[in-house]
């Protein structure tokens, strides 16, 4: 527990290790829904699909993302509590993550 926060969180969210700064969604949570993260109620601007992560704590740019109690990459920009934590705000500390450009070949 950090900064007097409780470990209470939404039952749809999973905390894998007390050291983690992310929670994992056990099921898909849609945009606009309210989730409890620590003591804070957060309205999700962006949905979080099953198996995806959201921030449990405020994460400054450059800070390690901790899941399973282990570092899984670094924040590329500041991340707010309840924000979706994924390829748009995290990078690997080993090899860059490869994604398909689904819009490639589309009419301009």
């Amino acid at each position: 527990m950090i900064d007097g926060e409780t470990d209470e969180h939404d039952p749809r969210l999973l905390l894998l290790s007390g050291r983690d700064n992310v929670l994992v969604a056990r099921e898909t949570i849609r945009p606009g829904e309210t989730v409890l993260v620590g003591r804070r109620k957060v309205v999700l601007a962006r949905g979080v699909a099953r198996g995806h992560k959201l921030a449990r704590l405020p994460i400054p740019a450059g800070e390690k993302i901790l899941k399973y109690g282990a570092p899984i990459g670094s924040a590329t920009r500041p991340i707010e509590v309840g924000e979706h934590v994924h390829v748009h705000n995290v990078k690997s500390d080993y090899t860059a993550t490869h994604l398909i450009d689904a819009s490639a070949g589309a009419e301009p």
């Binding site: 995806h52 899984i72 995290v90 993550t97």
Partner: peptide, 12 residues
């Protein structure tokens, strides 16, 4: 499917 980096995939 929610995995962000190779090290996250590795831990799993």
């Amino acid at each position: 499917g929610g995995l962000t980096t190779i090290e996250e995939k590795s831990m799993g």
